[in-house]
């Protein structure tokens, strides 16, 4: 098993005729993902050079292809609308790669999606990959390996760094999920942990957190209260100065809360080993398994 995406994923790429959407539609298909269609308003009825049908709307796309998942590569100003449209068309999962969406838009679209039974990943997410099965996102597929470690992360390239470290040391992954670097995301750290808790294939979970908010502290509490999988963590931003936004909109220490030190302490008190550098992660996970 795995979570969120697998061989049964039938994917629509929203923004497939754009530069990023087009490039990654090819990459995902090459990895083995069933890219069954794309949506670009005004370009319905055409096909991409790889023969993927393009539709004017998500409604058409879902009706014609039986898609259950969409991935969003459209500019920030249109991304919230793309999430509304995908939820309305009834897909079970929307993975939002787009970044720069105003928070005001997210607080309105997330309840709308939830009411329609649509799970949102992101925004500002690198996507989700179940190695050897399906990739929905922008991560390089070749650094992953099939196995039993679930990875949940608030960032992109740092996840690649840690996953690559795991893979090189022979530790495969069940699913790697980037929840996104924004303060308000569709699926947070705790919800992702719940998904892994229910996955038989996942033996251990690696949490890659960073400064800002208190999701990591809540995750530590969840472990203390009896989480069914082994957990290891990494926290980025130990050297971040307070009050400064570190790239991600959600990565900021405000009023003394959300510091790396607090998060590391919370994990350590919950018995979760915290890697001091990305290169230590494989050793820690081997010890857990």
């Amino acid at each position: 098993m795995s979570i969120l995406v697998d061989k049964g994923t039938r994917l629509i790429v929203q923004g497939i005729t754009g530069r990023d959407g087009g490039f990654h539609a090819k990459q995902m298909a090459a990895y083995g993902t069933k890219v069954v269609g794309g949506v670009t308003p005004g370009k319905g009825g055409t096909k991409t050079e790889d023969g993927v049908p393009v539709f004017d709307s998500m409604e058409d796309a879902v009706r014609e292809t039986g898609a259950n998942t969409s991935v969003i590569y459209v500019p920030a100003a249109f991304a919230a609308d793309a999430i509304y449209e995908a939820s309305d068309a009834g897909v079970a999962l929307v993975v939002c790669i787009a970044e720069g969406i105003p928070v005001r838009d997210m607080v309105s679209v997330l309840p709308y999606a939830r009411e329609r039974g649509t799970r949102v990943i992101g925004p500002n997410s690198p996507g989700v990959i179940s190695p050897g099965k399906t990739k929905v996102g922008i991560m390089p597929g070749n650094i992953h390996m099939e196995g039993g470690v679930g990875v949940i992360s608030r960032s992109g390239t740092l996840t690649y760094e840690i996953v690559y470290n795991l893979t090189r040391n022979g530790i495969g992954q069940s699913t790697c999920l980037g929840i996104g670097g924004d303060p308000i995301v569709g699926t947070n750290l705790l919800e992702a942990m719940e998904l892994f808790a229910a996955d038989d294939e996942t033996e251990a979970v690696v949490l890659i957190g960073e400064i800002g908010g208190n999701d990591e502290e809540q995750a530590a509490l969840m472990v203390r209260n009896g989480y069914p999988k082994k957990v290891a963590a990494f926290i980025a931003g130990r050297t971040a100065p307070p009050g400064k936004r570190m790239g991600h909109a959600g990565a900021i220490v405000t009023g003394g809360t959300g510091t790396a030190a607090d998060k590391v302490k919370a994990f350590e008190e919950a018995g979760v080993p915290v890697a001091a550098t990305p290169g230590e992660m494989a050793g820690i996970v081997s010890g857990l398994l």
Partner: peptide, 9 residues
């Protein structure tokens, strides 16, 4: 951003 923070750290 995450890798940039991890590099500083």
């Amino acid at each position: 951003a995450g890798l940039a923070m991890a590099t500083m750290d």
